[in-house]
Design a protein around this nucleic acid. Sequence first.
DNA 1: GTCGCTATTGCAACGCGTTGCGCTACGATC
DNA 2: GATCGTAGCGCAACGCGTTGCAATAGCGAC
Lengths: 154, 154
Amino acid sequence: MPQPDSPDPARASVASPWDGVADRLRASGLRWTPQRRNLVEVLREHEGHVTATDLIARCRELDGTTTPSTVYRTLDVLENLGLVRHGHAADGREEYHVLPEHVHGHLYCVGCGTTWEIRPETGALIVDALAADLGFSVDLTHVTIAGRCEGCQE
Amino acid sequence: MPQPDSPDPARASVASPWDGVADRLRASGLRWTPQRRNLVEVLREHEGHVTATDLIARCRELDGTTTPSTVYRTLDVLENLGLVRHGHAADGREEYHVLPEHVHGHLYCVGCGTTWEIRPETGALIVDALAADLGFSVDLTHVTIAGRCEGCQE
DNA sequence: GTCGCTATTGCAACGCGTTGCGCTACGATC
DNA sequence: GATCGTAGCGCAACGCGTTGCAATAGCGAC
């Protein structure tokens, strides 16, 4: 029965994707712990791109006893629920995309350090090109492509 | 004066790109050390893709005292000479491309673990698409795109 | 051949991410 | 409300990659 089971009607009307997390976890035999509550709280304020390091730092502000391994493990769980996706930035660090509405790849400018989203149409073009090349089915979300943005080319 | 300065005529006829390395280093005020000689020796036998870890392991076989930091630093130097390029594999680890004849990107299959090269024409298509999108000038060599190869899709 | 400058080395320590393990505490059941 | 199986926690240790520093050793100059 996919009816909203949040006990708070005011919040239910907002229909944040985070609202059902606790129940979705429990429905799979998983648990809703203070540490996970904290992480979700942090993710709420970070819709967009965050590095794992940032998330860990923010979680520790809320609860000094939080350990990195817990954060990483919880992020795995949330990724299985489709609430975050992780990828590797150009320097190989982990980067999390919160609540991706649509699948998109990323561009990282080595000049100014900005991360840009690849527009869906352009992404589709890339996916098609690689499919035609080797029959490859690409997972764009996992990738950050390095280069220089318009403003950073001499 | 760009004449071959290798003292060995037999070797000069082979014209391996590695032959001039020692002199190219010295010409820039850099030095030719036993550790660098070993690394070059290892790279010679590895034309293609290698992980930094593999390189370090092979170097230690030749000389047990070699330390990781030395290998990484020497790889940086060789990258400046254009003899290797490094990128990040799908899992974020470092991967080196030895003697890249042409600029090419990489595809990593999460199914079978194989790394594939993106054909130059397809690569150019991707570069063009991103240039048209955001005016982005892409460095394809630095990137590995994850996905599933033809044989690994159900 | 010797000297001296300095690039390079090895070491040690750090940061990021992952993994194995024993203990804790969530939450279903009674 | 009390019990209990187990998911999840913190901890400690590991592997990869990087960096600062003191000691070493290329190599050009004399």
